[in-house]
Nucleic acid binder design. Structure first.
Length: 322
DNA sequence: AAGAGTGTCAACCGCTACTAG
DNA sequence: CCTAGTAGCGGTTGACACTCT
């Protein structure tokens, strides 16, 4: 562990020498959580000192926001989230924190990482500048419809699986959701009417991304996962651990999950029951052979199609038509 | 089995904006 | 206004995990 002191603007040389860097230990996490549970967040520099942490205020803030907050959603980025990220990024560019506002529980850091490791990587494979119009068009006319299609497939397959499983009553994950009647019209993007070069995004349902986007996006695909997301310290949040745990304080309740959590203005207009039904779908599982991996969008096998699209797009740009 | 290569993501850095005194 | 403290953002790094040979 690197315990080298940092040169801060601020004052006390002794403190500076004690400042710690690198990965957080469980002990530090508990100190931070305990302190915030008692005193709330904010004023991070003094918080750090008062909590007895040899960390910068910045470091504490980051640790809390990106990792320890009870409402942080962990795990793979769902297909819907991918779609939303593509859509919002096409509109706002690298405004990660702004994009993150529309993906409840996701941090700007996580979205940024996703973009860099998946999207930029794929652009690189296609030898395409991620900021080019070409790349944006590929996203818009190829990848986003592809994502919508996969979301639909997964949803449809889930419905089939659900129907099947209700009659077989096994203990599978899909079966656990079998008492619901999943609506495979959950996302009803008018895919059949879409064609290359045509403005896509005509939607039949109420979903829209912020600012009246024309791309349909569902909310969290898996609320079950959301609520049971592998929190680093689940026992802590359920009040089982920690000498200084205060049952009267609200660590147990995710502070960012009010009743109208999903009534995000203009974004998540779906009714909660419908979403709760939908929540039982797990996009990462195979439903009757339909794989819905979060990575599937970027399958190498589809790079040829992408390349073809890019080349066609290039021709179009050069000639003014196809 | 082991080393190299690659991917992922937590954490850090530098910068800007905001605010209170 | 000016300054110091604080919060937040986006870019970057590095450690670790995983995969491939």
């Amino acid at each position: 562990m690197d315990e080298k002191g940092r040169n801060l603007n601020n004052n006390n040389m002794e403190d500076e020498m004690d400042l710690k860097r690198g990965p957080w230990t469980a002990e530090e996490d508990f100190k931070l959580m305990n302190y915030i549970a008692t005193h709330g967040e904010g004023r991070w520099n003094s918080l750090s000192r008062c909590a007895g942490l040899q960390r910068t205020g910045k470091s504490c803030r980051l640790r809390w926001l990106n990792y320890l907050r009870p409402d942080v959603r962990r795990g793979n980025i769902t297909l819907e989230e991918q779609l939303l990220i593509l859509e919002l990024h096409s509109r706002w560019g690298n405004r990660w924190s702004k994009i993150a506002q529309y993906l409840p529980g996701r941090t700007d850091n996580e979205i940024k990482n996703y973009w860099r490791t998946r999207v930029q990587k794929h652009a690189k494979q296609l030898k395409c500048d991620v900021n080019s119009q070409q790349f944006k068009d590929t996203m818009k006319y190829l990848w986003m419809p592809r994502l919508v299609e996969r979301i639909q497939s997964a949803s449809a397959a889930a419905t089939v699986a659900t129907t099947t499983n209700t009659t077989t009553t096994t203990g599978s994950a899909a079966t656990s959701s079998s008492n619901t009647t999943s609506n495979n019209q959950f996302m009803t993007y008018d895919y059949n009417n879409n064609s290359l070069g045509q403005q896509f995004g005509v939607v039949n349902n109420e979903y829209s991304t912020p600012e009246n986007s024309n791309v349909a996006v569902s909310p969290m695909s898996d609320l079950t996962e959301y609520y049971s997301a592998p929190n680093p310290y689940p026992e802590y949040y359920s009040g089982q651990v920690g000498n200084s745990y205060h049952p009267d304080q609200d660590l147990v309740v995710p502070q960012m999950l009010p009743d109208n959590y999903y009534d995000y203005p203009g974004l998540l207009d779906e009714d909660l029951p419908g979403m709760q039904e939908q929540s039982n779908l797990n996009w990462f599982e195979d439903f009757n052979g339909v794989t819905s991996s979060s990575d599937s969008l970027w399958n190498i096998g589809e790079s040829n199609e992408d390349l073809w699209f890019l080349q066609t797009q290039q021709q179009f740009n050069n000639n003014g038509n196809f």
